Amino acid sequence: MSPFKGHSGFKRIVNAAGYSMAGLKAAFVGEAAFRQLVLLNAVLIPLSFFLPVSRVEHAVLVLACLLALIVELVNSAIEATVDRISLERHPLSKNAKDMGSAAQFVALTLIALVWGIILI
């Protein structure tokens, strides 16, 4: 068991929230792709409130947008971990980074498909 897992209850929740905010800040400050997705979400999510769609369709539009942010956070974490291990070029490192990038490509494709299907 990790020594960092010692807290429980409310203290753990407070610590977890702090770590989450630190992660969001690190992503926003250090990752241009994350900032671009935040901007895209800042446009698309409010726009979704003005569209003549059902509540379920509205939820799907928003969820597709938020999923891309989640995937970008995971992709950035993968890249940081690979770079922490070694900056040397290695086929497995390339595969890990490429797969993270591919996941983000799929998430962005999902946004386009969901918005396209619902709006057309």
Rank of each mutant, 00 (worst) to 15 (best):
S2C: 06
S2M: 07
P3M: 00
K5H: 11
H7N: 10
H7F: 15
S8M: 12
F10W: 13
K11G: 08
R12N: 10
I13C: 08
I13N: 06
G18V: 05
S20D: 11
M21R: 15
M21H: 15
G23F: 01
L24F: 15
K25L: 14
A27R: 06
F28C: 12
V29A: 14
E31N: 15
A32F: 07
A32P: 15
Q36K: 11
Q36A: 10
L37V: 01
V38F: 00
N41C: 08
N41L: 00
A42S: 05
V43Q: 04
L44A: 01
I45L: 02
P46Q: 00
S48R: 03
F49D: 04
F50Y: 09
L51V: 05
P52T: 02
P52C: 04
R55T: 13
V56L: 06
V56C: 06
E57H: 04
H58N: 08
A59F: 12
L61P: 00
A68V: 02
I70T: 07
V71Y: 01
L73C: 03
L73R: 05
N75P: 08
N75I: 09
A77V: 06
A80Y: 08
A80R: 15
V82Y: 00
R84L: 09
I85V: 07
I85R: 08
E88Q: 04
E88N: 05
H90R: 01
P91Q: 06
L92M: 09
K94N: 13
A96L: 11
A96Y: 07
D98K: 14
D98Y: 10
G100M: 05
A103K: 13
A103L: 11
A103I: 05
Q104S: 11
A107L: 04
L108G: 08
L108W: 13
G116V: 07
G116M: 03
